[in-house]
Design a protein around this nucleic acid. Structure first.
Length: 423
RNA sequence: GGUCAGGUGGCUGAGUGGUCGAAAGCACUUCUUUGCUAAAGAAGCGUGCCCCAAAAGGGUACCGAGGGUUCGAAUCCCUCCCUGACCGCCA
């Protein structure tokens, strides 16, 4: 959520920056200001009346003690109370409208964010490693995995529906090995604290990180929308600190979690969805940072490097791209995507998205810290996938496949998988 | 799921209709004293919003959440949520 004070001070600036995202959110700016004025006018009047009521009620108390008749005063106060109620309802309606608008307006892209309308305008920041070369025609992961009995899509439909998979045998063990490898890496080398959060989370959390109210259709909901299956650990982990005031010395707070992620992926059927690439349920290890506002952009660079370390240790070829204004996520001010090379597909796959949300999420969930002067300020929040598992899995199979159909296990994973070769 | 007991400031914990944003203690901050540590004393110490150009200041709301009763609610009533204990069920 953006700061209402910024709307009052520089509405045109907000509009201009929202316009770089595309979409029509900038058109809501004037409406926000109108509701804000309506709200404040109502609140001011209401509070004046409340003050009057408090004064007269005290007077009644005093008079009653002296045994005097107060019926006339009581009637006056009754009238005031009625007006408070009417005006209060008006002010509440304005506030609700204002909040609803603010919740639908995305974050402002960082001033240096490349302007563009879609992913074709995302600049490549750097590339690591080289495309692996093969003396044979590399197969794609579905073919490799099916041959090695690593996973089974058809069996999954017997217990669920399309968009789910069951990992089997060594394939299941590889999934588990990756989770372990990732958590160990981030806790032992990057200073993260590990948590294992609930996967069913209440609605307010989804509002806090920005999935709601706009993207409800993409989420699995329970109990008529009161609860949701977490679409990413970002939601439960960041919301662990909702409505809290941290000490400045607590920052930066770095938390990692492995969780399954649940997404309906409404409207994305058939899009880049072969095999493991786009699932309704997938595993992910997430990195969440709560940081001091002065440090968040530096922290984003570090966070991105921590996610990159995953791919480097596994020896996977990847590139880092920066999202342009038109491709930026709803809550984000700046985002780097990590794309790993999948030789079987001959395509780059997004395995991580590292974002700085500045104070946008913190404001929604009232996550603050007390600074040296004793003022409460909003933290900045960041998160990055560290990393998504299925696409990592795809890249591993396709990168390290051998001509005989087996897959060589990268050294970093051997201690976890306890074998050097699959198949 | 059932029964009972509870939810008050960072913590402990008073407060059952009026001057209570809320006693007291602990913790914390600053200052004074003391050679250091410790101890003692003094003051301060919640959050949101509104008014004010801002600061100062003032106002208002908040005692789990939301409604209600009342001139007036932390206090009475209703609904919901949560926590604890016991019972039932269960991985």
């Amino acid at each position: 959520m953006l700061d209402i004070r910024q709307f009052r001070e520089d509405p045109e600036g907000i509009k201009t920056r929202l316009q770089t995202r595309g979409g029509e959110s900038w058109q809501l700016v004037d409406e926000v200001l109108a509701q804000d004025e309506r709200r404040r006018a109502g609140e001011t009047e209401k509070q004046q009346l409340q003050s009057e009521r408090n004064r007269l009620s005290k007077e009644i108390g005093g008079l009653k003690k002296q045994g005097q008749d107060t019926s006339e005063l009581e009637a006056t106060v009754r009238g005031i109370s009625e007006r408070i109620k009417t005006i209060g309802e008006e002010a509440d309606a304005a506030e609700e409208a204002q909040t609803d608008l603010l919740l639908h307006i995305p974050n402002l892209p960082h001033a240096a964010c490349p302007v563009g309308s879609d992913e074709t305008a995302n600049p490549v920041v750097r590339e690591w490693g080289a495309k692996p070369e093969f003396a044979f025609e590399p197969k794609d992961h579905v073919e490799i995995g099916t041959r090695l009995d690593l996973f089974d899509f058809e069996a999954a439909t017997r217990v669920s529906t399309g968009g789910f998979v069951v990992f089997t045998g060594v394939g299941a063990r590889l999934e588990r090995a990756l989770i372990q490898f990732l958590l160990d890496l981030h806790t032992e080398f990057h200073g993260y604290t590990e948590v294992s959060p609930p996967h069913i989370i209440h609605r307010d959390c989804m509002v806090g990180t920005g999935q709601l109210p706009k993207f409800e259709d993409d989420m699995y909901s329970l109990e008529e929308g009161a609860f949701f299956l977490a679409p990413t650990a970002e939601v439960p982990v960041t919301n662990l600190y909702r409505e809290t005031i941290l000490k400045e010395s607590d920052l930066p707070l770095k938390v990692t979690a492995y969780t399954p992620c649940f997404r309906r992926e409404a409207g994305s059927a058939g899009r880049e969805s072969r095999g493991l690439i786009r699932m309704h349920q997938f595993d992910k290890v997430e990195l969440v940072n709560l940081v001091h506002p002065d440090e968040s952009f530096a922290q984003l660079e570090l966070l991105t490097a921590e996610a990159e370390a995953v791919l480097q240790r596994l020896g996977l070829h990847y590139r880092v791209i920066e999202l342009c204004t038109g491709d930026l996520g709803f809550s984000s001010a700046k985002t780097y995507d990590l794309e790993v090379w999948a030789p079987g597909h001959g395509a780059w796959l997004e395995v991580s998205s590292c974002s700085n949300f500045v104070d946008y999420q913190a404001r929604r969930m009232r996550l603050r810290f007390k600074d040296a002067e004793g003022h409460n300020r909003f933290c900045h929040t960041l998160n990055g996938s560290g990393t998504a598992l299925p696409r990592l899995y795809v890249a591993l199979l396709e990168t390290f496949q051998q001509e005989d159909g087996s897959v060589k296990v990268p050294e970093a994973l051997v201690p976890y998988l306890k074998r050097e070769r699959i198949g």
